[in-house]
Design a protein around this nucleic acid. Sequence first.
DNA 1: CAGAGATCGAACCGTTCGGTACGATCCGGG
DNA 2: CCCGGATCGTACCGAACGGTTCGATCTCTG
Lengths: 197, 197
Amino acid sequence: MPVPKGSTIDPVRTRAAILEAATPVLYERGLDGIGVAELCAHLGVSKETLYRHFGSKDGLVRAMLETRSERIARWLAEAIAAAGHDPADQLAAVFDVLQQWYDDPAFRGCAVLNAAAQHHDQTVRAITERHLDRYLELLTGIAVRAGAPDPHTLGRQWLMLVEGATAVAAHHDKVSAGEHAHRAALALLPATAGARG
Amino acid sequence: MPVPKGSTIDPVRTRAAILEAATPVLYERGLDGIGVAELCAHLGVSKETLYRHFGSKDGLVRAMLETRSERIARWLAEAIAAAGHDPADQLAAVFDVLQQWYDDPAFRGCAVLNAAAQHHDQTVRAITERHLDRYLELLTGIAVRAGAPDPHTLGRQWLMLVEGATAVAAHHDKVSAGEHAHRAALALLPATAGARG
DNA sequence: CAGAGATCGAACCGTTCGGTACGATCCGGG
DNA sequence: CCCGGATCGTACCGAACGGTTCGATCTCTG
């Protein structure tokens, strides 16, 4: 029973449960690939409840994308933090996490970028841009700690590798995509930096 | 007058004209972002004509994606051929073409990959995979001519940079995206190869 | 134990969708 | 000169869409 029936039992928990359950469904079916009625059936929630908590389908979508973006960034940041102090290890951790994601049978590419490809809504565009900002910040941080002379550019090139690997894994071939991207990212490090010692 | 009115004047020209006119509209509005009626109004064609030539909206979409994929590949191949014999120049030509594309105000990312993000139809997936195959073949060719020891892997890493640069340009910041990706691609060349001399 | 509030389920609304049908029009080939 | 076929414009279809409403139900709070 994902959502309790009674009253004041937990107004905020219902919202969170809806969000949690809607995320994978919207991801695998696509934002416009499922209607509100069928979606509610999957969630075990009535339409009225959904509309009271999110106002509209777009409201749910926006909340879902923001939550997902924040979660991904937190997930990556934790993987980086757990990798110790060596920037090379931190970089390896990033691409390890990515490859694990690619290996998930449900993997269908980046949910946020997929969403942006469908809704060219202004709000969704903003969420997408902020999502890539978060990625960029994490990667630039590694580049700084690695002593790269132009960490901003290196971070951006790493971002391209991350997104490129994700696209290739989603639409072409996921085997070793993370590993190949990782090796490419490493090759950029000594080329741009005078670092490593 | 995009489509002549009379009869046997040219059955194949009508189809081509529809395809040509539909491509930019579907690109900027999104595959599901415009209905058949409005689309036909933009094309200056009646629904009956469209359905006689393409059978369904999906039929039109498939034809459009295949045509677009082939055209992009041909365009890139010509740019490579025009760049002379030096693989480095050929690589530069690829990223030059990409940056020109990014600078187009109508640029909204790769039409084929955007389509795949919306329709997870089997046919669209196949078109997308073939599209990336074409890219990969062109890039691997450059890697071979550059004497890379593992040209297949290098081609794939370049493909990631190409798609990553496109995604970043579409969703984050298009300024210098092609140039940064180009520099990253160059850095991969001496790292993977023992070549250049 | 009574009331407030959250939820359900289902009916309902207007709109839009992809797709079809039809009569009128226009043209090139025999 | 006329017929066949491609086209147009429009009306139409059933289904699905996003969203609203309402009575019944349930549960926590006072």
